[in-house]
Design a protein around this nucleic acid. Structure first.
Lengths: 240, 240
DNA sequence: ATAGAAGTGGAGGACTCTCCTCCACTTGCC
DNA sequence: GGCAAGTGGAGGAGAGTCCTCCACTTCTAT
């Protein structure tokens, strides 16, 4: 019972370097392609073999998990920042916009936040963490009369999902079109509005639309059949 | 060169019956589970063997194609109806709502309209068909002053994608929540609005949210690598 | 300098999942 | 009653994922 798991021995110098390489590669690959990227992809990006990656991280989930600690930090920071804005409505707009920007910039984070395929626990934790902040933001903005009274903190995730959709749609043609739709949405949740807010982006023209539709990733909503859960290594519990 | 492909000989009585059974089963299965359902599923639902299904339809795409002729009819009909409404804004609201309802009721149709995985040509055709109708609807609604002036017909698909997201999210917990978000969106595209429209549905409560997030299908945006295109049967065109 | 612990690469195993084929057998029709 | 047409469903082909395994290389402590 001495040093139960403490000081698990430092990695060899080269190994530590590689660990950092893996993290960096994973950040990049996941941000760019989302969690559908494989550890093989990460390894290639890092200039290492898959085996090395698996030696350091027992499985994909562990790597994702290690990585998104920092992503979550960004989300929380955005929420905190918005609460400091004396104009609560502006803060609200800012918050949603920043969250959308984070998603737009990092597909991996989007996958984590919107899909729960990985890091279920961690996401729950994040939600617990920002829920009160969202509630406060909403309450303030309503009290100041900027946000429609029937809006709820629980609506924010839905908003983000909607925006995620437009982000993805425009990605290859006009990476910023989503701001157009975010603006419409925000106009929709403002308390009163004599004139529509100026849309920051033009609509997709025929060519863009055509290309977007064509290059549009085939969206799959994999229905939860037969609890795929984790798939897990083939180690059966009966192996004992 | 006589009767080139005309009157391709009627099916045997039982075969014709089975063909209808297949169509009915496909309608049901695809509407319920989307295009990710396999022809095996369709066959099972029809109480037939897969072989039978493949004897009648050369591949999945052919079946999907045969089926969605009618789905497209519904879409066009909705568009026509909305154009008849003397109140152009009401017509617009109606149009978007009906399109959303169609998607909500038929996941297969949604997949076709939003993903182009199947029936690329047919979808293009549909788009050509409704595009002018949308343009007219938009133009009318703007002229009458109901719709914000910077809205474009090309924005409608984006709106529908956003709604599709919320439809899917609420599906198992509160199949109608999407109307809440559609209402916000519509408020966002109206020209002026002193008071927000009453939201037709309450937000998801904590339990709903938790369950929705948990049962939430793992959303996959399969990035178009290596042109999956069609995969197609292995019949090469060189077979001629 | 060197033993041997630690680390590495990447082919390939195990698994899953989908679309579709094949062919022995059954059924309807002239 | 004969035979073309139709049927069922096991299983082949192919794609793709996660991860293991182990011969080999590299570091580091003595």
């Amino acid at each position: 019972m001495d040093t139960p798991a403490a000081v698990p021995r430092p990695l060899r110098r080269d190994a530590e370097l590689n660990r950092l390489r893996i993290m960096a590669a994973a950040r990049e690959v996941f941000a760019e392609r989302g969690l559908e990227a494989t550890l093989d992809d990460v390894a290639r990006q890092a200039g290492l073999g898959v085996g090395t990656v698996y030696r350091r991280f027992p499985n994909k989930e562990a790597l994702v998990d290690a990585l998104f600690e920092e992503g979550f930090g960004r989300v929380v920071a955005a929420a905190e920042r918005s609460l400091e804005n004396p104009d609560a409505w502006a803060g609200m707009v800012n918050l949603v916009t920043e969250l959308a920007e984070i998603q737009a910039a990092d597909r991996g984070l989007r996958d984590i936040m919107l899909s729960e395929a990985y890091g279920r626990d961690r996401v729950a934790q994040l939600r617990d963490r920002i829920k009160p902040m969202l509630e406060q933001a909403v309450e303030r903005a309503q009290r100041q009369g900027g946000l429609r009274a029937d809006f709820r903190a629980a609506d924010v995730p839905a908003l983000l999902m909607m925006i995620a959709m437009t982000v993805e749609f425009g990605r290859d043609v006009r990476p910023e079109v989503w701001r157009r739709y975010l603006t419409m949405l925000l106009d929709g949740i403002s308390a009163r509005r004599d004139h529509p807010t100026r849309l920051p982006e033009p609509e997709l023209d025929d060519d863009d639309m055509h290309e977007a539709m064509h290059a549009w990733p085939r969206l799959r909503w994999t229905t939860p059949t037969s609890t795929p859960e984790k798939r897990g290594p083939k180690v059966l519990s009966s192996e004992v």
